[in-house]
Write a protein that binds this DNA or RNA. Sequence first.
DNA 1: CAGTGAGCGAGCTTCCGCTTGACTT
Length: 648
Amino acid sequence: MNVVVVESPAKAKTINKYLGSDYTVLASYGHVRDLPSKNGSVNPDEDFAMIWDMDTKSRQRVNDIAKALKGADKLILATDPDREGEAISWHVLDILREKGALKDKDVARVVFNAITKSAVTEAMENARDLDEDLVEAYLARRALDYLVGFTLSPVLWRKLPGSRSAGRVQSVALRLVCDRELEIEAFKSQEYWTIEADLRTAEDKAFRARLNAVDGKKLGKFDVPAEQDAKTIESAMKEGRYAVESVEAKPAKRNPAAPFTTSTLQQEASRKLGFSSARTMQIAQKLYEGINLDGETTGLITYMRTDGVQIANEAIAEARNVIQDDFGEPYVPGTPRVYKTKAKNAQEAHEAIRPTSLARRPKEVSRVLDDEQFKLYDLIWKRTLASQMESADFERTTVDVVTEGTDSKRFTLRATGQVVVFDGFLKLYQEGRDDDGDEEDGRRLPKMSKGETVGLVKLEPLQHFTEPPPRFTEATLIKRMEELGIGRPSTYTAILTTLRNREYVRMDKKRLIPEDKGRLVTAFLESFFERYVQYDFTANLEEQLDRISAGDLDWKKVLREFWHDFNGAVGETADLRITEVLDALNELLGPHVFPQNEDGSDPRACPNCDDGQLSLKVGKFGAFVGCSNYPECRFTRQFTQDNGEDAG
DNA sequence: CAGTGAGCGAGCTTCCGCTTGACTT
């Protein structure tokens, strides 16, 4: 008898089925130990000694493993093939040794690259020892996160009343939201015009073109800045004869998107189904754990917390069969598609999120799913199948039409069109778009040939204004965090919950809006702990962790160097008076707290007395704006001025 | 859900990442 330890109970069940009755497969349910949430769990003065603690549930689970080991010959640690998985194996092993549950037992570490019978069997034949270097990389990561969070948070409590917490991940996520808000506030909308023309071909077919060049020189976005300029061009163009100068058709190809990871599933479920990331994960968990299908609990999708985009060969083969059956030969590509992850810091311990069997078509399982489960399963099924389908072929056409104006200028108008020659994967699935994607020109242009005269139906100058960047949604923030390597699939939604619970951000119409509290915390960290909220801090840390994993760098050395600089920065804030903190925040948040008055008058002038200057203050209820002539002048106002923008 | 401003000291909060139930309504 052998005892196998994996992380998740659903996985334990599946693997037990593949391994048979000679094996007992038990789940650790994630990390079995952690640093207690109190001071002193990591001690930099004692060479970063760490104290570990087990909760009652974990203790029970480890007892179950120890009990199973009693009559067994071998312990097989089969936690996930990444840094955290290696750490879980190490924790389990360490505890079992302490309990004396391992005498005379063989111990082996095994990693599954996919949860299929062949992958599991093959992995069992390639056991290895625990990777101590990888465990040390984990220890460095864990200690650093604890030290940053449990040192920085108290600094905030003392220096910035009302603030709650800071950390390597949450503070950078918050910074993204706050920096975006500053961009929006600093944004000045700019006017520009385009000249559009409705035209007709010799065969009396309508199409629309836009002024693109004057005297052969391409128009820039702001080359027609005002109505007067547009009108001048319009009247010059109005009387001319219009002729086709060139017709150019080019083939284009579009490939399907990669199968879902946690991050892309959350984005797409938000765009297409309107689910919050928490909702998406709850539903996906249910599909993963299994649905009662004809009296048997069957997992419908693979593991949902993953950053991998590759899928098992068995699944690819099945996808190609389903494509062949449902869509026909032309939709099956010559060779299977292979996807590689682009995400920074990806660990790829799991496959992409896919149906456990592509032959289980959505409509066949719909009777056992509720509405939301069905929608999510349908989305995952389509995305996965489409990822193995043939590319779509287009023909993109560009037509230039020329006319000579009454001012002797030569005006070039351009029309573009796109025709689907072969729909490929688009027959099944097309990825949704975020806020500001370029508009896709799906129109078909009528037949035209070079030299042909076309008739002008209408000239239309159109006014436009540039738009500020949009606020983040949950999904777009998670996308950005993933690009920066901040947070992990298992923590994305937890981070958003933390930012809300701390009252650092609020949600309005699915957009993240920073609260004053959050902006103050960010401004404080940018002023005094700049290095630790830089967008690439985590990426640089990960590089060092990689070197620890490779055995090229000592983990304690990394911690010592980090602590030396970090503790120094903390020390520099020790004597900081609140007034000095406020001076720094006044500087950074000035444009937000004191926006330019429209009449050009001083935005910091006190409206209540002659020579008072307004500035930031903190009281026991948070930040507010007060007058420098206090207590003679008792003027105060709220930190944020309501622009009435929330009404729209 | 109104009122706030310094600084002291009591006593409270706090990190990230891995995994699910066992509580309530």
